[in-house]
């Protein structure tokens, strides 16, 4: 007998139904659309057991790696514990290890979670100021390299969470965090492929994690990181990134600023947007794996331009969460 476990309840599964059909028979409705493995409305995540063969066809490698599958395509042959894809998972406490200034408006918040957090470099999590007041921030840390979680938090004018982090959080304080989320991360395979990462402002955080993760996993193809800001003062981590570029000949760090000036010259920064710099360096993106993070307009423009420039839609990664405004 095969058991489907969902939200703490056990259901008997009978072949040849799909997980979607089986749960529906037991009165559990999962959101669904085409029921043909195309629209991905019925995306679920396998928490325990073996993902049924064929249930991950057409999913991004990032989703496959995390055990996501399509309920309308899944015919399990052994017990399976499943969850809805958008379940945020468990919250937990974390201790503040450091609040370090990266530039005038961005701090690095280092946290030690009470339980090890299962995450990929480039994912994001929710940071709670209180139960009903939270924001999502990308992780800049890499699980295999860093003993802590690191978030880069820009002070938003009137920001209720960012101001609290900047002005009130001190070493030793306790905060609550949610589970790791998002599909913007490096997956091994195709080690010769060109990686192209475009970020603005604190959007550097996940890209910084992804670059270090890819290098640590032995990525051999060229890795191009473009980080943009209005002025040189808005950039950060230049020294660490330049050091990384010295250490790994396949890694290229390209700082970009809107205004020319002596500081930009000293840093060898490009004048113009990250997208302009990337287009002028690469022109065609047919074999690139792309990661975008930062200002929503940049992400939107870059996705269009890079897709039209030949990149496959499945190779363009960007997390959809937007700054909340306050």
């Amino acid at each position: 007998m095969t058991i489907l476990r969902f939200q703490g309840q056990d259901f008997v599964y009978e072949a040849p139904r799909t997980v979607l059909e089986s749960l529906a028979e037991h009165g559990v409705e999962i959101p669904s659309g085409c029921r043909a493995g195309v629209c991905q409305s019925c995306l679920m995540r396998c928490l325990e057991g073996e993902v049924p063969a064929g249930a991950q066809e057409g999913l991004k490698p990032a989703l496959v790696a995390q055990g996501y599958f399509l309920a309308c395509r899944a015919r399990p042959s052994s017990d399976l514990t499943v969850a809805l894809a958008d379940a945020e998972g468990l919250r937990q406490r974390a201790h503040v290890l450091a609040v370090e200034s990266l530039n005038q408006e961005i701090v690095a918040l280092r946290l030690k979670p009470e339980r090890p957090l299962d995450y990929r470099a480039g994912q994001y999590l929710r940071l709670y100021r209180q139960a009903d007041l939270s924001r999502c921030y990308s992780l800049a840390s890499v699980p295999t390299l860093d003993d802590w979680l690191e978030l880069h938090i820009r002070r938003i004018p009137e920001g209720r969470v960012s101001a609290w982090v900047h002005d009130q959080l001190r070493v030793g304080a306790q905060v609550e965090i949610g589970d790791s989320l998002g599909q913007c991360f490096y997956t091994p395979g195709q080690e010769e492929q060109t990686l192209l990462l475009l970020g603005t402002g604190s959007g550097l955080a996940p890209l910084y994690g992804i670059v270090r993760d890819a290098l640590a996993q032995g990525h051999r193809g060229p890795i191009w990181l473009y980080h943009g800001s209005f002025t040189v003062e808005g950039l950060y981590h230049q020294t660490a990134l330049q050091r990384l570029a010295g250490q790994f000949p396949n890694f290229h760090y390209v700082p970009c600023v809107d205004r020319a000036g002596p500081e930009a010259l000293a840093l060898n920064a490009r004048v113009g947007t990250v997208l302009e710099a990337a287009v002028s360096d690469h022109r065609v993106f047919a074999h690139h794996r792309v990661f975008l993070c930062g200002h929503p307009d940049m992400v939107k423009d870059a996705r269009l331009k890079i897709f039209l420039g030949g990149a496959s839609m499945a190779e363009i990664h960007a997390d959809p969460f937007l700054p909340s405004g306050t």
Partner: peptide, 24 residues
């Protein structure tokens, strides 16, 4: 429009036009 979502819709449309499985 959201390009990623639109791409998934294009895929569903192509599957249908190619005579493939669909429930639209």
């Amino acid at each position: 429009v959201d390009m990623e979502k639109q791409s998934a819709k294009q895929k569903a449309f192509l599957t249908m036009a190619f005579g493939g499985p669909n429930h639209y």
